[in-house]
Simulated scan of single mutants.
Amino acid sequence: MRWDFDQDGPLIPEGLRAVDLGDLPNDPATPQENRSLITSTTASILKAEAVPLLLGGDDSVPIPFFAGFERFGPVTILQIDAHLAWRGERDGLKHTSSGTMRRASEMPWVARIIRVGQRGIGGSRERDLADAQAWGVTLFSAATVRRHGVQPVIDLISPGSQCIVTLDCDGLDPTVIPAVLIPQPGGLAYLDIVELLLALRSGRGSLVLISWNWCRIRMYEA
């Protein structure tokens, strides 16, 4: 049994089992079918009382992942990302990496969104920020985390709430993960992420579900 010093315990605690369901089929010519498959697969995993872990894709992939929780809400989304992702449309398209959290806010089962790690100027317009704040998003910039740590973020998550963690790799500092589409200095440290996840596991979230996005893989809408 491998010991994990980050959580001061075994890497996989007794009684838990990790299962790899493999890659879902992905045809660039059928974006709606791709999204529907992500949604239905997520819902089926939840129905089986398991915890889904989605890996891969750009920051539009969490949209159909969130949609899979329609019958399993309300949920709190903890978004770790350098960018706001609140654009209404981009080039006439709604399901893009620029509008992930705007689409999430339109889902009635999403009760709260907490944003962590935003920095720089890329991808976030003033009107998008105003719309996010009007909806009720709570924002913790990377600079705020540097000054105060992640405890203020943890304090906002109600004990026992169902939490989805969506982690865009560019939310971390590029010294941790450099291979992202738009690397920007000043992101969260690895142990910041560990501390957030451990707090959720220890009672701040009764259900932690993770979408981990690798920014060099892109998904397009026809």
Rank of each mutant, 00 (worst) to 15 (best):
D4S: 08
D4P: 08
G9Y: 08
G9I: 06
G9S: 14
L11A: 07
I12Q: 04
E14L: 03
G15L: 00
L16A: 05
L21I: 07
L21Y: 12
G22C: 09
D23C: 07
L24C: 00
P25T: 01
D27G: 00
D27V: 09
T30E: 04
P31H: 03
P31G: 06
N34A: 04
S36W: 14
S36G: 15
L37Q: 15
T39R: 15
A43E: 14
S44R: 14
K47R: 13
V51E: 00
V51C: 12
P52I: 00
L53E: 07
D58F: 01
S60M: 00
V61N: 05
P62E: 02
P62D: 04
P64G: 02
F65W: 13
F66I: 10
F72A: 14
F72H: 15
F72T: 10
V75N: 12
Q79S: 09
D81E: 07
A82W: 08
A82T: 12
A82H: 05
L84K: 01
A85R: 12
W86E: 02
W86A: 06
R87N: 09
R90E: 12
R90V: 10
G92N: 08
G92K: 09
G92R: 06
G92F: 08
L93K: 15
H95P: 00
T96I: 00
T96M: 04
S98P: 01
G99E: 02
T100E: 13
M101W: 09
M101G: 05
R102K: 12
R102C: 06
A104Y: 12
S105N: 07
S105T: 06
P108A: 14
W109Y: 10
W109A: 01
A111Y: 07
R112W: 08
I113F: 10
I114R: 02
R115K: 11
V116F: 01
G117D: 00
R119S: 03
R119N: 07
G120T: 14
I121W: 08
I121G: 06
G122M: 13
G122N: 13
G123H: 15
R125Q: 08
R125D: 14
E126R: 08
R127D: 09
R127I: 08
L129P: 07
D131P: 05
A134S: 10
G136N: 08
V137G: 01
G149V: 01
V150D: 05
Q151L: 09
Q151I: 06
V153T: 03
I154P: 03
D155V: 01
D155Y: 09
L156D: 02
I157K: 01
S158H: 10
Q162H: 10
C163M: 08
C163T: 15
V165T: 06
T166D: 10
L167A: 11
D173E: 02
D173I: 03
P174H: 09
T175I: 11
A179M: 12
A179H: 09
A179K: 04
L181G: 13
L181F: 02
P185D: 10
P185H: 06
G186Y: 00
L188H: 04
A189P: 00
A189L: 05
L191C: 07
I193P: 03
V194L: 10
V194W: 13
E195C: 06
L198S: 09
L200R: 12
L200I: 15
L200S: 05
S202Q: 15
G203R: 14
I210S: 14
S211M: 02
N213F: 01
W214D: 15
C215L: 14
C215A: 15
C215Y: 01
R216H: 13
I217E: 13
R218M: 14
R218D: 05
E221C: 05
A222C: 02
